[in-house]
Amino acid sequence: MTQWIDICSVDDLQPNSGVCALVNNQQVAIFYFPNEDKIYAIGNYDPIGKANVLSRGMVGDINGEPVVASPLFKQHFSLQSGRCLEQDEQVPCYSVRVHDDRIELAEKN
């Protein structure tokens, strides 16, 4: 069964932007698109820039796929799959849900 972990309130999220959460000692980047009421979560560690920064990148989409651009060297990571669009890299991906105005995360399997 999926293990949902309580993270923060919806208010703590930043619109069209990211925040970082500590989940089981892992850093997770959570992105919030209020216009579509969508929330995505992927690993915060940028394997190319080698720093915990993805939550601080700019978001948007490329051909419809929601992405974040790394703030260090601007590679795009898919928010749906964690896949890097320019290089052969992959970051972890998490499921997100809103429960009573609280954000909850779960590892994707």
């Binding site: 698109f33 216009n35 978001v59 948007g60 989409d61 490329i62 419809g64 929601p66 651009a69």
Partner: peptide
């Protein structure tokens, strides 16, 4: 159209 990206947003 779409959600924008780091280019147009910036």
């Amino acid at each position: 159209r779409g959600r924008g990206c780091e280019v147009c947003r910036q």
